[in-house]
Design a protein around this nucleic acid. Structure first.
Lengths: 224, 224
DNA sequence: CAATGTGAAGACCTTCACAGCC
DNA sequence: GGCTGTGAAGGTCTTCACATTG
């Protein structure tokens, strides 16, 4: 019952989940791999492989039961429980994240907003008040924070990560444009806005040739 | 001279570039694949493979010339020219992106901020004034916009993408939590903040077992 | 007969290991 | 001696194609 779900599949499950929730909202009770593939932007073979990896319950000739599949994916992703997260860095990005509705909608509660800058401590963002980073260990303990989000400038990122790890956080999402190292038992993911643009720049430049001479260009877009 | 750089390599080049710029700032003239690997958080074999893919100039026994390598990577990524980008959606995220300094630092100029909401049109964000989305085609033409950034709510994303494509934009970065389809000759990349958290949730849940019974857990983190 | 589930094949990516060069 | 560049091996992921099943 506990297959090791491949990483690539894990990273697509949230996509399927979103598509399925949409379908459920439209009153669909059942969905084929073809339809789900279209809604999620992948191939139907991939949908079937992915879903079979979590021991799924499809019906040949019919498809998948939307409600059941939502439950399966939620449970696999660990979304049947609610998670408390914490955001370090109350700059532009930290504030935008703090106000972003999509987190709460998906079961992620923002437990605290932290910064080292005394001028930011006490600031209200949405219905949260920024606190000093020194309060981190206490908050992690009292609020049961599972995930830390780093939205600080690059120079502060490693220090903040170290503090998070020291306070017992084992999952980190890093938005700072900097390399951060953590112990093996801590999971870290990285989102770098400027890097995404630079990758687009490559393809834009490459494809610009397409409009000029005869150098043929094959398609590709790069994974997420 | 025009090797087809693998997608996986392209998505790491910005990482190397950032590390190299740091090293240059610290006065390093030369760097080995080991050092660069450490700075970028990958293995040295990967650094060498990646760099050799762009026909690189390393010196056996010495390493790579930092300044030269910066030039090579910039040129490969198309960063020797400056790009104009445009942000659609002046909500939390759109404003945060508009104020983010990292874009300008890396040669991406924000040419315009657009929204359909008349109450947002005219708003100043940083030193830009939000304009109505209807102005998109004119702006793309007059400002030579190459990249469109979608920071709208999910429901608006497809419409905005269609308008961007119609206006001649061929590269799109989509932050809206929605599937967006574009013609084959348009490159689209997607960044979904909530999805990243959901992926972390999976690993957090899986590793929580590690603290309880005896089920051994192997490490993995999933790519970016 | 429509649609799943899955072995097998193929593409892509990473790691290994070492020859080659400075 | 130190470090690059790369062929070969090893993984992982995706696609194909079809047997299987409600």
């Amino acid at each position: 019952m506990n297959r090791p779900v491949p990483d690539a599949t894990v990273s697509r499950l949230p996509l399927y989940l979103r598509a399925l929730v949409d379908l459920a909202g439209m009153g669909e009770a059942t969905v084929s791999s073809d339809e789900l593939a279209e809604a999620a932007g992948v191939t139907s073979a991939m949908v079937r492989k992915d879903l079979s990896a979590l021991g799924s319950y499809g019906t040949r000739g019919i498809g998948y039961d939307v409600a059941q599949l939502i439950g399966e994916i939620r449970s696999t992703l660990g979304l049947t429980q609610h998670w408390s997260i914490l955001i370090a860095g109350v700059g532009n990005l930290g504030q935008a994240l703090a106000r972003y509705k999509g987190f709460a909608e998906r079961g992620f509660r923002i437990a605290a907003l932290l910064d080292v800058d005394r001028s930011k401590v006490g600031t209200r963002v949405g219905d949260l008040e920024a606190r000093h980073l020194d309060a981190l260990p206490g908050i992690v303990r009292s609020e049961g924070v599972a995930i830390g989000v780093i939205a600080t400038p690059a120079v502060a990122a490693q220090d903040v990560a170290d503090r998070m790890v020291g306070a017992g956080i084992r999952s980190i999402l890093n938005f700072a444009p900097a390399m951060v190292t953590v112990p093996d038992d801590v999971t870290i993911r990285k989102v770098d806005l400027a890097i995404e643009l630079q990758i687009l720049s490559y393809y834009e430049q490459r494809d610009a040739l397409r409009d000029l001479p005869d150098g043929g260009a094959e398609g590709a877009t790069g994974g997420s």
